[in-house]
Design a protein around this nucleic acid. Structure first.
Lengths: 250, 250
DNA sequence: ACCTGTTTAGAGGTCAGACCACAAGTATAC
DNA sequence: GTATACTTGTGGTCTGACCTCTAAACAGGT
């Protein structure tokens, strides 16, 4: 019988802390950036030991809900959401996650994101995208700088999609590939073609050409995938000779 | 400015434990299902206090990498991967995640997953899907039972896609909607049409009709979305851009 | 031999209180 | 006025004792 168990891995006291904080968040008492009371005080209020309290706080911190700063305090996370970004690095070895699968996930997500962005993007997003494209062209001779704007470009599209959940997921998947990406860009020879593709994507989004945006993004990422040697093994599609020097960066 | 910070929220000792376990996993010493040495012993070996060790273990458990069983021991997780499933419930209130966004993410993911399944599904998957479809038809008068096979059907497709990462992401998104889904099924009037759609999806996957599988899955989910009243506000046939917005930049 | 209730050993969970380390403000010395 | 030192508040770590849960070993009765 398929059971959809919630698997709350928490022991009594930890649960107590987690639920306490959860209710504080849900009823609006705690908002992003807010500071939690000092551990000693909170522990006293909840009638539990500081050790147990810390277990609960640790759990929340591990999930990215809280942010602990030594000597300062514990705060509710306020940055961009983080859905299991950290755990992904463990999942690889444990569940046999492959690089090409990561990339495939990225292609699926980002092409959908691009379509949504084309559909819903606002002027401010268009402006921000144009800005990043310009910066990319300006940084064609400077790979590290180029990568920064490249990342930003994709991030803005995710925002323009109007779906923060998908954006968070994309961020999780993408971040795990950052290192490899950086190396690729380092030895990139021709970033011009990459920048060109970004420009086309931008134009299709601005022109609200949903299908184009999806197609161009997919095409762009497939090229990047090839450039980074992350193709799916056994994916025999040598029909079109892969450019020896595919556009790098993405 | 775009910063791709790794955000390792861990203090020295916790880090030490996490990295220790990480290396054990990466070099294959620890495999899914394996048992970790007792806390007291491990703490002694690592030359740290049991309290600190427990902090690290707790961190890993929170990420779903380890599974703690009171009175028994600590084990490496062996079930299906879990990418921040638990944290999603906190992200809602914190980052304004909406139900329709969750559903939109699901549609994007599952339609892509269906296409991949059509492309790569093996006989065993086809057989399993046929089985679930049959069970669904048999349970048309029994909503709770129906839901079980419904969930299973989608899960098998995810498996058939050959991409465990996407499957894990889908699982995360889906699980957060389970409760609402159960309620919908409870008051469902005609599960026959739903079963019929699943059958069509199954046939397209079995027939390796990639585009059909994608289209049918999307259509199926959009219908479910409407049934659960999770449409995007202002997204009706009138087609007026929704005024909803989230600020840019991060 | 076979159940069944009890004991026991091993593992994680909790507690208490002391002390360490870090960050930031405040007072003091120059 | 600036720089250093002190004080305070907060999280980080340690110690070692005790609690609770599980599962296996054991003992008794059938």
């Amino acid at each position: 019988m398929p059971r959809v168990r919630q698997d709350v891995p928490e022991s009594h006291r930890t649960m107590q802390v987690v639920n306490h904080v959860r209710s504080l968040i849900e009823n609006g008492t705690l908002q992003p950036g807010d500071k939690l009371p000092p551990e000693r005080e909170l522990a006293r209020d909840l009638k539990i030991s500081r050790a147990s309290l810390r277990t609960g706080i640790g759990y929340l911190a591990a999930m990215g809900v809280m942010k602990i700063r030594h000597g300062v305090g514990t705060f509710v996370a306020d940055g961009p959401p983080d859905l299991g970004k950290a755990s992904l690095s463990f999942m690889g070895p444990l569940h046999g996650f492959q690089s090409w699968q990561m990339f495939e996930a990225r292609i699926l997500l980002e092409s959908g994101l691009a379509a949504l962005a084309a559909e819903r993007g606002k002027d401010e997003h268009h402006a921000a995208l144009a800005e990043e494209v310009a910066e990319m062209f300006a940084a064609i001779e400077n790979p590290p700088e180029y990568l920064i704007h490249d990342v930003m470009f994709h991030r803005i599209i995710a925002q323009a999609s109007g779906n923060p959940i998908l954006a968070a997921i994309m961020e999780t998947v993408t971040s795990s590939m950052y290192d490899k990406r950086r190396k690729t860009v380092e030895r990139a020879i021709d970033l011009r073609e990459s920048a060109e593709m970004h420009r086309e994507i931008y134009r299709s989004i601005r022109g609200r050409k949903t299908a184009d945006a999806r197609r161009l993004m997919e095409q762009h990422l497939r090229m990047a995938q090839i450039a980074q040697g992350m193709e799916r093994p056994g994916d025999k599609r040598s029909a079109a000779p892969a450019p020896r020097e595919a556009p790098l960066g993405d």
